[in-house]
Simulated scan of single mutants.
Amino acid sequence: MRDSPRLFMDPQAYPPLQPDMVVRLEPDRAHYLGNVLRLSAGARVVVFNARDGEWSAGIETLRRDRGEIRLTRMERAPHATAGPVLFFAPLKRDATEMVIRMGTELGVGCFHPVFTERTNTHRLNETRLGAIAREASEQCERLDVPDIRPPCPLTDVIAHYPSNMRLFVALERLEPAPDPDGLPAARPGDGLLIGPEGGFSPREQEFLRRQPFACVLSLGPLVLRADTAAAAGLALMGAGLRRQAVSGL
């Protein structure tokens, strides 16, 4: 199982998975197995999604961009990742893709790009970002693929933010240093807001501090790249969530 390639099966494109069910692969999936991984009939694969869980399967046929697999049995029961929502200002292409990849591996439940005063790019290839999230989910063995919502202005995010959830706002050059045990107040579904390269403007910082659901988050006294800040903030939130799960809080 651990050495078998993992393939995400979009629950909107396939009926519920069942033992001995034969599934026709989408062309890009068949191409990946046959032409990239050089697999053939008889090879073992793993398929998954949050609705059906994780299933072992065998390749029945595989030719160019066509193929079929036969499901064997469920290996893991379905469940969705109870992770935070990551609000981030779009960055240059490689950095944005890194945020999606690292965020998926660190358990983000949903990505929400936001436009700020200092956002330096307003173009996003949502199809490519979705593919990166899918590939990262396949690699890190989670059962779901995080959603990527359409971008919107920061003011719209704040105007519609649920008042019963916290929004952790990462600001630069703050003391004290972050707690190595993570954020004990973090809960599943809370948000993490990361600004653009150059940080939030003074007006935005003042605006964010006034929000009753906003919690200012220190990532230490050093100035981090925006993609590094996203990974650091998510690691702190993840540590806090794991600590609560262990302690039963």
Rank of each mutant, 00 (worst) to 15 (best):
D179M: 02
D179T: 02
D179C: 07
D179L: 06
G182M: 05
G182Y: 01
L183F: 06
P184L: 02
P184A: 07
A185F: 00
A185N: 00
A185E: 15
A185Y: 00
A185L: 14
A186T: 07
A186F: 08
R187D: 11
R187E: 13
R187F: 01
P188Q: 11
P188I: 11
P188Y: 15
P188W: 04
G189R: 13
D190K: 12
D190M: 02
D190S: 05
D190L: 10
D190Y: 09
G191R: 09
G191I: 02
L192M: 10
L192K: 09
L193W: 02
L193G: 10
L193F: 03
I194D: 02
P196W: 09
P196R: 08
P196S: 08
P196D: 09
G198C: 12
G198I: 10
G199A: 03
G199W: 06
F200V: 09
F200Y: 14
P202Y: 05
R203H: 08
R203S: 15
E204W: 05
E204I: 12
E204M: 04
Q205T: 12
Q205E: 15
Q205P: 02
F207M: 15
F207R: 09
F207G: 01
L208S: 12
L208F: 14
L208Y: 03
L208A: 12
R209V: 05
R209S: 03
R209Q: 13
R210A: 15
Q211G: 11
Q211I: 01
Q211D: 06
P212G: 08
P212I: 04
F213D: 08
A214C: 15
A214E: 08
A214Q: 05
C215M: 08
V216Y: 00
L217G: 01
L217I: 13
S218T: 14
S218N: 10
